[in-house]
Structures are given as C-alpha cells and as structure tokens.
Design a protein around this nucleic acid. Structure first.
Length: 122
DNA sequence: AAGTTGACTATTT
DNA sequence: AAAATAGCCAACT
C-alpha cells in the first residue's frame, strides 16, 4: 500500500488552516485560536496567522473573516492598508464594528456547532 | 543546527 | 480602554 514517504502525517498544517478558514460563513468571524483549534492544531494560534500572512491566491480564501481574540483586526506591524481593507470587507458582509474598531464575538463569532434554526423561524 | 521572528493570547500595569 | 509583559510554538534565516 504505498505508504507515504517516511510515514509522515502528509497534510501540511498550513493547508489545514486554509481548509477551516474556507468554511467560515459569510458575515461571521473567527479568531486565530479558534481556527487553529478546528484545524486540529490547538495552541498554534500563531500558526494560523503565519499561514494567512501569505494568503495564497486561487483558493478563494476569506482571510478577512479571521481576526484576533480581542475581536479586532490584527495589525501587521509594518505599513499595510490591508487592515482598513479587511474591516471594509467585513462591514460589507454585515459585520458591525464598535467605535473602537472592535467586533462583538458574541454575536458575529462563528460557531461551527450552531445549527440554523429551521422550521418556524424565530 | 541554533537563533530570531511573528495576521497570537492571557495577564498585568 | 489601551499599552506593556510574558508565554507559546512553528516557520524562517
């Protein structure tokens, strides 16, 4: 059975993170720690950031839906308009930022376990 | 191979 | 509320 070379796990951690980010529904946001956890990499929140740092093209990756645990857009350190751009994209999707530029994770935080109430809404 | 860096997080000031 | 500090872990040099 053609075992993989050196019996390694195979999938790269970056790829797992991309897969999870792709699953974030529109109008919802997730934290790096949450994404890492769902990717099977608990405690590797920084890895999620490192992976998104490149934002590979062609994957239709909604990187803008990933923010830090503080509910704020992560500063890149250097100069990057991407921060303002990210906020703009989220607002377009329906995410509301508070006066301090913070998002209410209680309301817009993605809950992968939550099921859309069907049958008689509300 | 070893040291530095960093789209993080929690705690403290 | 914002800034500084410490801890963590993998990628990058």
């Amino acid at each position: 059975m053609a075992p993989e070379k050196s019996g390694k796990g195979g999938a790269d951690p970056f790829k797992k993170i991309y897969a999870v980010v792709k699953r974030i529904p529109e109008g919802r946001v997730a934290t790096y720690g949450q994404v890492a956890s769902l990717a099977g990499l608990p405690g590797r929140a920084r890895l999620a950031g490192t992976a998104l740092r490149e934002t590979p093209e062609g994957l239709d990756l909604p990187w803008q839906r990933v923010i830090n645990a503080g509910g704020k857009v992560s500063p890149r350190g250097g100069m990057s308009v991407a921060e303002g751009y990210q906020r703009h994209l989220l607002e377009e999707e329906g995410v509301v930022f508070s006066a301090s530029g913070r998002v209410d994770l209680e309301r817009f935080g993605w809950n992968p376990d939550a099921r859309p109430p069907r049958r008689r809404g509300s």
